[in-house]
Simulated assay, not measured.
Amino acid sequence: MQATCVKFCEFGAPTRVLQVGNRYLSPPAADEVLVRMLARPINPSDLIPIRGSYAHRISLPNIPGYEGVGIIEEVGEAVSKQLVGMRVLPLRGEGTWQEFVQTKKEYVVPIPDAIPNYIACQLYINPITAWVICTEVLRLKEGDVLLVNAAGSSIGRIMAQLSRLIGFEMIAVLRNDHHKKELQRLGVAHVIHSTNTTKSIYHNVMEITNGNGVAAAIDAVGGFSGTELALCVQPDGDFLTLGLLSGVPVDWKLVSTQAKVNARLFHLRHWNKQVSTHDWQKAFKQIIQFIVEGKVTLMKHAATYPLFEVKEAVQCAETAQSNMGKVILIN
């Protein structure tokens, strides 16, 4: 069967190298399902590989996309036919920016009817990352203080809500006031402006924590901002790097000599390899329960584009303000 897909045959700017074409689909293997995709968000993590950041582990041509939601159309001989017609997240298999996705049955996550497609397609990268970091990596508990930069992002909003559910206190670092009221409504205890010229982030954090510093800090920016976050962590606390929005690494030499912290990187794919399928599915069940009960909300979509207009969709995603929500690719 022929199916539409988005692919790139060389690394470079997504609006230049992405192509819309067709691919041949073979029947699903015995333990696989074939999913007809309905919606997929465009995340920064989807675009980074296209530019070549992970060229050493990506073979070309490649179909991008880490998450999305769809309907099971066909199953392998070892999979129950009762799953046909079920709406699921087909993960850890093929790239999702295509008409159909094949993956193993154990890697599909059922989605209840109460969750609309534009929310369901966002349930993987940011919610699971936030949940795993807060509960398993940092093991935050009631009374702990967490410092987060680029806190107006999708994952920052989720962490703000988890702070209320788990009981830890979150300090959000923002460049301006655009997200302040929303983050405070979601659960953030304190907001610091990184552009404040009268007080540094370090000075503000020490003032808020009575000189104790924070239990943990999460850096998605890098550069000076990330380095300063590390210096705000109390001795033997945790400093986690999650992204590199500035394109500049933190000053690791300064961090190692002046900050007595446990510094590490977090990649969701590494956690996927280490965790059992049972615990992987358990994390999704918890997030889905939070969504259904209204305890965690995700941003509404900013715009939708058909798959064949992927270049226009990517351009919109890259120019839209972060508070506008995700750009969604539909069939």
Score class of each variant (00 low, 15 high):
2 Q>E: 14
5 C>A: 15
10 E>H: 13
17 V>Y: 06
19 Q>R: 13
25 L>S: 00
26 S>V: 02
26 S>N: 03
29 A>P: 00
30 A>M: 09
34 L>M: 14
36 R>Q: 14
39 A>G: 09
42 I>Q: 02
43 N>W: 01
47 L>S: 01
48 I>F: 15
49 P>D: 07
51 R>L: 06
54 Y>M: 13
60 L>E: 11
60 L>P: 06
62 N>W: 03
63 I>E: 04
65 G>E: 05
67 E>I: 05
69 V>Y: 11
70 G>V: 07
76 G>N: 11
83 L>A: 03
83 L>N: 05
86 M>Y: 04
87 R>F: 10
97 W>D: 12
99 E>F: 01
102 Q>W: 07
111 I>A: 10
111 I>C: 09
123 L>R: 08
126 N>M: 08
135 T>N: 15
140 L>K: 09
140 L>W: 05
148 V>W: 00
149 N>G: 10
149 N>T: 04
151 A>F: 13
152 G>P: 10
153 S>M: 15
155 I>H: 10
156 G>S: 08
156 G>P: 14
157 R>A: 01
160 A>R: 14
164 R>G: 04
165 L>I: 09
166 I>E: 06
170 M>R: 04
171 I>T: 03
179 H>K: 13
180 K>D: 03
181 K>L: 11
183 L>N: 07
192 I>Q: 04
203 H>D: 15
204 N>L: 00
206 M>G: 02
209 T>F: 04
210 N>V: 03
213 G>P: 14
217 A>H: 01
221 V>K: 09
222 G>C: 11
224 F>L: 14
230 A>T: 13
233 V>A: 09
237 G>F: 02
240 L>E: 11
242 L>A: 10
245 L>R: 08
248 V>K: 15
251 D>R: 07
254 L>F: 01
255 V>G: 08
256 S>G: 12
257 T>L: 14
257 T>A: 05
257 T>M: 13
260 K>D: 05
263 A>P: 09
265 L>T: 02
265 L>A: 02
265 L>C: 01
266 F>W: 00
268 L>D: 10
272 N>M: 10
273 K>A: 15
273 K>V: 10
274 Q>W: 00
277 T>S: 13
278 H>N: 08
279 D>V: 06
281 Q>W: 02
285 K>Q: 15
286 Q>F: 07
288 I>C: 06
295 K>C: 07
296 V>E: 03
297 T>S: 11
302 A>W: 05
307 L>S: 06
307 L>N: 05
309 E>N: 15
311 K>D: 05
314 V>Q: 09
316 C>T: 08
323 N>V: 09
323 N>S: 11
327 V>N: 00
331 N>D: 06
